[in-house]
């Protein structure tokens, strides 16, 4: 009796274990497949064109192993956490039916993730230095920090607003391309009136807002929202948040550049 019970348990465990191992193997293989091209390109150019022997082979191998394992864990975590979380919150807000809270959540998510984004802090500091050149020693430090903080605030508000617009767009069913094409038209019209140095800062600000963790979460939020509303197509209405979030920072920083000219 005891023995059969025992073997029963081990058999179940073994099936579970086998399934988990198989899934792990699949994910690992996918990661290898995703990373193989970049390794081949760098390796081929290094060996055929530069003809230099690799000096730190051990470090290289360790690094590649970390990249493969890291990507595998990330993708596994996407399915377990980021996607279900974003969708669960979207469903809960849709069920609650309170648009004001949903809008507040979208804004907080956009503002919060962007204000603390390391890439944005780096750009803001660099831009602050540009802005402060020509001032005397004492005024320079003050002007620099003030400019950097303003820039971070403006970009964070821009991303917060982008997610708000994205959410309202999903609720109303507006097509995304009018917003995006209109927005880029504005960007092109504003560009000639902005100082040259600020143009680079503005376009860079558009790229820093789409970090590797925010992208899956916002995508899941949009798709979840569109699929829990009647009459919305998740493919047609759920995507488009990231496009908005990389447009509004450019626009806002350009306006800032015009205002400060």
């Amino acid at each position: 009796m005891q023995r059969t019970e025992c073997t029963g348990i081990t058999r179940v465990n073994r099936v579970d274990l086998e399934r988990a191992l198989k899934r792990c193997g699949e994910l690992l293989w996918q990661s290898v497949r995703d990373l193989l091209p970049i390794v081949l390109v760098v390796g081929a150019f290094q060996l055929l064109l530069f003809r230099q022997p690799l000096d730190d082979v051990a470090g290289l191998m360790l690094g590649l192993a970390l990249v493969v394992v890291g990507l595998t864990l990330f993708v596994a975590g996407l399915d377990m956490a980021l996607f279900p979380l974003g969708e669960a919150m979207a469903h809960a807000f849709a069920k609650k039916g309170n648009v004001a809270w949903l809008v507040a959540f979208a804004f907080a998510l956009g503002f919060g993730t962007t204000f603390a984004e390391p890439a944005l802090i780096a750009i803001a500091d660099k831009a602050g230095e540009l802005k402060a050149t020509g001032l005397d020693e004492e005024a320079r430090g003050l002007a620099r920090t003030r400019f950097a903080m303003t820039l971070r605030g403006v970009v964070a508000v821009a991303v917060g607003l982008a997610l708000v617009i994205g959410v309202i767009r999903i609720l109303k069913g507006w097509p995304v391309h009018y917003l995006i094409i209109g927005g880029y038209l504005l960007v092109m019209m504003l560009t000639p009136f902005v100082p040259r140095a600020m143009i680079g800062v503005a376009y860079d600000a558009g790229g820093v807002t789409t970090s590797t963790i925010t992208v899956p979460l916002t995508t899941a939020l949009g798709v979840g929202l569109a699929s829990s509303l009647r009459g919305r197509n998740p493919l047609l209405d759920g995507f488009g948040m990231i496009a908005l979030a990389s447009l509004t920072p450019i626009l806002f920083v350009l306006v800032l550049g015009v205002a400060w000219r």
Binding site: I38, V39, V42, G59, L60, M61, L62, G63, L64, A65, L66, V67, V68, V69, G70, L71, T72, L73, F74, V75, A76, G77, T212, I213
Partner: peptide, 13 residues
């Protein structure tokens, strides 16, 4: 996963 991924890139590629 993301930390290991970024570290590996920094180290190898």
């Amino acid at each position: 996963g993301l930390s290991l991924f970024l570290m590996g890139l920094e180290l190898a590629l």
